[in-house]
Amino acid sequence: MSNKEFLTSSLAKKFVMAATGLFLISFLVVHVSINSLIFLNDGGETFNVAAGFMAHNIIIRIMEIGLFVGLLMHIYQAWILTQENKKARPVQYAVQNETASKWYSRSMGILGSLLLIFLAVHLYNFWYPTKVAVAAGTEHNTYNELKEVFTGELWFVFVPVYILGVVSLGYHLLHGFPSAFQSLGFNHKKYTPLINAIGTGFSIIVPLIFALMPLAFLLGILD
């Protein structure tokens, strides 16, 4: 591509945000689907089979690298855009009325940062032990690990962190889902109301399923 502005312009940065955002949304679909298997309440048998596949399959391993690259691009581009946007208004208003937009639309950076903190805890809880077990070639029971995190002695730390994490995810998605389509130039009288409706549904249902997991363990609904 000879047009170097395509890689450096403000619009190009928004394309990267939108494309990586949609990619991360597709990951959420897979993640939430596998997680839902715990609600079969079979002692984690089916869930562990799926988790084992995700931990060992070579194609999934390669896709995992892509996932981290996508996540890092999303974070890096957001950081650059935030710095540029701050520079665009050096003097703030004494009075700024905020009724023209939603609070979560203006707080994507804060919501994203909360998500990043949650993600660090989440990777430490589940991703890291899985990697260690896979590397050592030992048997790994992810379901038991879930139970340990959410009902173990530190449950009062982890459960609130997870709930706060998925609430941040919900609001981040509520803006991000429809916003990605707008950034990629898709705003159509016929389809945009549908995209917005799907976006709102997705932003409520997916975090809700994630939130139900620690709650179900804590309340003893799952054994």
Partner: peptide
């Protein structure tokens, strides 16, 4: 010109 970029807040 130094304008910021669009965050799609719709304001």
């Amino acid at each position: 010109e130094g304008f910021g970029s669009c965050t799609n807040t719709g304001a």
